[in-house]
Design a protein around this nucleic acid. Sequence first.
DNA 1: TTGTTCGTAATAGTATTACTATCGTAATAG
DNA 2: CTATTACGATAGTAATACTATTACGAACAA
Lengths: 227, 227
Amino acid sequence: MSVVTIQIGEKYYSKDPQSTELGRKIISASIELLDQLGFEEFTFKKLAESIGSTEASIYRYFENKLKLLVYLTSWYWAWLEYMIDYKTHHIQDKAVKLKEIIKILCHADQGDSSIDMPGVNTVCLRHVVVSEADKTYLTKKVDEINNQGLFMGFKSLCHKIALTISAISPSFEYPHAVASTILEASHQQAFFALHLPSLTEIRRDGKDSVENQVYRFIDVLISKLLK
Amino acid sequence: MSVVTIQIGEKYYSKDPQSTELGRKIISASIELLDQLGFEEFTFKKLAESIGSTEASIYRYFENKLKLLVYLTSWYWAWLEYMIDYKTHHIQDKAVKLKEIIKILCHADQGDSSIDMPGVNTVCLRHVVVSEADKTYLTKKVDEINNQGLFMGFKSLCHKIALTISAISPSFEYPHAVASTILEASHQQAFFALHLPSLTEIRRDGKDSVENQVYRFIDVLISKLLK
DNA sequence: TTGTTCGTAATAGTATTACTATCGTAATAG
DNA sequence: CTATTACGATAGTAATACTATTACGAACAA
């Protein structure tokens, strides 16, 4: 088991939360609180109370709660990309590599927690990302956030997947579109299984975990697509 | 050109907005305002001002702005389903029918506005749905809203698509998952083309419209999948 | 030792949001 | 003629999303 620190560029925050004790508390507590309350009910005041600090102190680290969410999701994408590199760099067969990538995307490798992060509850964070990540761009502030380069983590991950798709099927004309589609689908299908089960065949009560079922679904999709 | 009224069940509102002049003004103005401001910046106060009424009067029709959004999106799903029935009921070949359905989903049949709705700017509404619809379920209130049966429109549309998929490929094990995936993807890819173009091959500046390109992408996806 | 500077945190404040509640009055229905 | 509805007007509340100011403590210099 290895310990890794994932660094996030300074454009994401007003003050680096990794640099102080309070900052690290903000990160770990915000993940738990976002998971509990959801983005709408989540406030800096509640977060401050949960760590025995004040609203104003948290504003010193993050401009607002959207920026905090962007920070957390970017961290998650960076973490996923690190995991992909770590677990697939040795794989020669591109089709096998893509399967492994999909497994990681779907969090279907949960048991294998070979990479652990201090102060970050990754299971909790995954849950937050599934429910809230889309809100980072489904806002009138998309272009502003994008111009600041804050979606780079997501783009980079998407591009990595797209490259693998192209390596398998060089003539396929939609590698990026498929990459972003399966990234989103891996979240949506997991969410639907829990809350709107009639929208998917994935079942929470099956003998197999939701994550594994989502993995198999995406795998079928990709396999047929690139054949 | 025909005029159709799409009825939405009474569980969606406190008072039927179709039943009064003010109610209809609320609907048409809220579509425009949601498009302009986005869901976060949109308030009942601003809506009231834009139609020369008061906040309290709008609360007589809708409990809150989320319920209003749920109403509008449900209306949109019902409209899409009506269009699908209207335009595909005569098609025997299921593969052709699915292509036509996808065309409608992607709004790739814009020019053909054979069905027009009084008081509803469908182009504007489509835009709102693309940017905001996911917020109807990406909230801690999902289960509550779902228990009230307010996602029926979406489920019904999804099921209709799934049935056609099953008719083409009876052994395919994920008809609903694919249906919900392409429904979401048809919005996401259009959104990405406008705001995060590196996530997709669909281009806004091509000679072809974004809608047509999204249609072709989904069509390729589905064709290869069900072959 | 005293004084100054600096970063940080707590206090307090504001404008806006998301409602709720009450009242008056015009139109409309029975 | 009365009862209901429809709606506007006014007011009020608790919470949210911030911001501005002040207070405090450590570090360093004179």
